[in-house]
């Protein structure tokens, strides 16, 4: 029910309490689908929501976790792992996704376009 508050660069998408710890949500940011994750210690990550392998908009619904030093989400469709810091797809490098900037302002989660 949050209205999209757009400043020049950042879009507020929800309150942090709306994301169940260790899971993700999907936000509509400037017409695009962004998966936003809240992990241990309220660390936030944001990547594209669409799994390039199959075009399904589902990455926000994947299981999060760690593989070695990487923090990853596993796509629900074929369990490909995406690095939440870099957007790399571990199983299929050609299917990497974009990383979005994300921060908390008060208790508002805000997403902005990444550099890459």
């Amino acid at each position: 029910m949050n209205s999209i508050t757009a400043s020049s660069e950042w879009t507020s998408v929800c309150r942090i309490g709306e994301i169940v710890p260790d899971t993700g949500v999907c936000a509509l940011v400037q017409g695009e689908q962004v998966a936003v994750f809240r992990l241990a210690g309220d660390a936030l990550y944001a990547i594209d929501n669409i799994d390039p392998d199959n075009g399904a908009a589902v990455l926000s619904r994947g299981l999060t976790g760690s593989l070695g030093e990487r923090v990853v989400v596993a796509s629900p469709i074929h369990k490909h792992h995406f690095d939440l810091r870099t957007g790399e797809c571990l199983e299929a490098p050609q299917h990497g996704v974009r990383v979005w900037k994300v921060r908390v302002d008060g208790d508002l989660v805000q997403v902005g376009r990444g550099d890459r």
Partner: peptide, 12 residues
């Protein structure tokens, strides 16, 4: 589908 919109997923 969206935490900040009632819109539907246009991929479906």
């Amino acid at each position: 589908h969206f935490v900040n919109s009632e819109a539907a997923d246009d991929q479906v």
